[in-house]
Design a protein around this nucleic acid. Structure first.
Lengths: 246, 246
DNA sequence: TCGGTTTGTGACGGTTCGTAACAGCGCGCA
DNA sequence: TGCGCGCTGTTACGAACCGTCACAAACCGA
């Protein structure tokens, strides 16, 4: 297995002053009242098994959450982006470790205070619940990917997932940033870096994607990628899964 | 890929009269007020994509929840047992299909009524949240299994998971019932039936487990199985993952 | 008892892994 | 500015694991 850059544990965040905001109505607004923190790429926010004292909201940058088993095998269960919440679904201990992929800005919230705030507000509760559902849906899709998709399908799914993300802010974007390393991608997709690398090369040689600097690439034929994901991401054509709800 | 027994859709459950109970304090008590339903093995409770009108509580028997992608590949994301809730983490549509593995007794609850009941009760909310967290934790562990474990580790993890379940009701049980088919197990573990079968045989020849009829087996050396899971289920010995929380 | 389904076992092959060598890029330092 | 070093990423090749295919045996319900 490959070595990975073990981040230093940070016990003292660099604090950035932030102006006070009006009454919180959504979770994001609630977090806005919290101090903005910043850490460098590679830093660890918390370890799996740590007492779960805080929730986090990613403000800028990318975060990876992962589990490590026995002999060092790592599984990245998710990448988190600005607006995402970390540590919603937990009881008293973190289920996974969290490290900054890039330089990262985030906000922290004490678990108890957060719970109290959510309990007190009729607006916050449905939103929190919705976020939990999204997290669960993502986990299920990831299980499908890890369980039954081959290397090419996994990589295509990954790329389209990221394209969709870019397109949420910029609807006809075709360039996706991939700040994480190949090892990160491999550990997220349940492959090795070599297989990820080979698959990228193959997709490029077929003209589906094109390199765009070191840590970005251009999706040339999104439709072509979608056809290779093995089961989701079909947009317009009829899809057996969808046509069945009664 | 192997064919699977496509269950008939049930539109009318067999209803079983049940005595009214006192005030609900836990979720289980809440469900006790609902009519008990029964279906035969193979029946479908709902399909992925269906409008999510109800939650379910398994009362007796086993349920499988699964997703199917494009060309018929199936992924079983979980087996559910008496006391388990189905459909907690969802918004307006079911994330997966649900079929009875065995003859099944269950209770249904309208989503809206359930939401209202939970919102109205200060006791129910934490329990619901806790169940969501458990569901999430299970999903994460499954991702680890599917992503990084080999066939033997997957099967051993599966067996121990079931042994633990049996031992929750009967602390020194060593026989585990496996009412699902090999195909179900394979689709749950991301393997083929042949690999599951071969792995069982191997574990038997090593004396770790012993056959106990067709759909049950005896765990002879649980400790031995635990050592082969590749990362969890170590009980007493120091375990790097655990020794690190501060 | 019979036929279909489920399970078990073997041989074979393919996808992915693992090792290794090399190339590209960034960084510090002379 | 040029050089060396380390890290990341790419490519090649042999090996291993698991999937595929084929068939037999066991089981189950009619």
């Amino acid at each position: 297995m490959h070595a990975m850059n073990a981040g230093q544990r940070i016990d003292r965040f660099q604090l950035i002053p932030i102006a006070a905001k009006p009454a919180p109505s959504t979770i994001e607004a609630l977090f806005k009242k919290q101090t903005l923190c910043q850490v460098e790429a590679g830093a660890t926010l918390f370890y799996e098994g740590d007492s779960a004292s805080h929730l986090f909201e990613v403000v800028q940058g990318v975060l990876r959450i992962f589990k490590i088993i026995g002999d060092g095998r790592r599984v990245i269960t998710g990448f988190l982006y600005p607006g995402d919440l970390v540590g919603v679904s937990l009881k008293d201990r973190y289920l996974y470790s969290a490290e900054a992929v890039t330089d990262l800005r985030f906000r922290r919230f004490g678990r108890r205070e957060f719970q109290d705030a959510v309990n007190a507000s009729l607006e916050l509760r449905p939103e929190l619940f919705a976020r939990l559902c999204d997290e669960m849906a993502a986990a299920q899709n990831q299980m499908v990917l890890l369980s039954r998709k081959n290397a090419e399908e996994r990589v295509c799914s990954f790329l389209l997932e990221h394209l969709r993300r870019e397109q949420r802010t910029c609807p006809n974007a075709s360039i996706i940033e991939l700040p994480m390393t190949r090892l990160d991608i491999a550990d997220y997709l349940g492959l090795t870096i070599e297989t990820v690398s080979r698959t990228f090369t193959k997709l490029m040689s077929r003209g589906l994607i094109a390199p765009e600097g070191r840590h970005a690439l251009r999706v040339v034929r999104a439709r072509g990628l979608a056809r290779l994901t093995g089961g989701e991401y079909e947009d317009d054509n009829d899809f057996p899964m969808r046509s069945r709800h009664n």
